[in-house]
């Protein structure tokens, strides 16, 4: 992958991480408050992000034949299976227990929330266990 593409991904990731920190999603307490019906802020975060991304995914491929630094716009179709539901159910239990998901782990560590290193390391181990599980 070309350096320019990696740099673009790095910049986009940084915007994403800045947004996560600004919206306080890097504090597990805020996510837990949402899940416990005490603060609906997370809906605004998800809604705002989906609104912008929805427009981008719909409009950009209509306006351009290919991305500025790439060959094609990836469709990334998701397939539906039992794993979608079982995996999401497990993910939700973990999210409701810890109050963090993968994005806020990285953004939070960058913003000095060192305790999230625990969750990040655990997510790595969980992904490894998944690889072992499907290879059994």
């Amino acid at each position: 992958m070309r350096t320019a593409q990696l740099l673009a991904v790095l910049i986009g990731g940084a915007l994403f991480g800045f947004g996560l920190a600004w919206s306080t999603m890097i504090q597990p307490e805020v996510v837990l408050d949402f899940l416990q019906f005490e603060d609906s802020g997370l809906l605004l975060v998800l809604g705002g992000a989906v609104l912008v991304t929805l427009c981008a995914y719909l409009l950009i491929p209509k306006l351009m034949n290919k991305p500025l630094l790439g060959k094609e716009f990836h469709k990334h179709p998701n397939t539906f299976s039992k794993n979608t539901i079982v995996g999401s159910a497990l993910f939700g239990v973990g999210w409701g227990l810890a109050g963090v998901c993968p994005g806020p782990v990285f953004a939070g560590i960058g913003a000095g929330n060192w305790m999230l290193l625990i969750s990040g390391a655990a997510m790595f181990l969980g992904a490894y266990a998944h690889g072992r599980y499907v290879s059994r």
Partner: peptide
Amino acid sequence: GGALAGFGARMA
């Protein structure tokens, strides 16, 4: 929570 979220997200 992190371990479950990691496993579950990859499965899903």
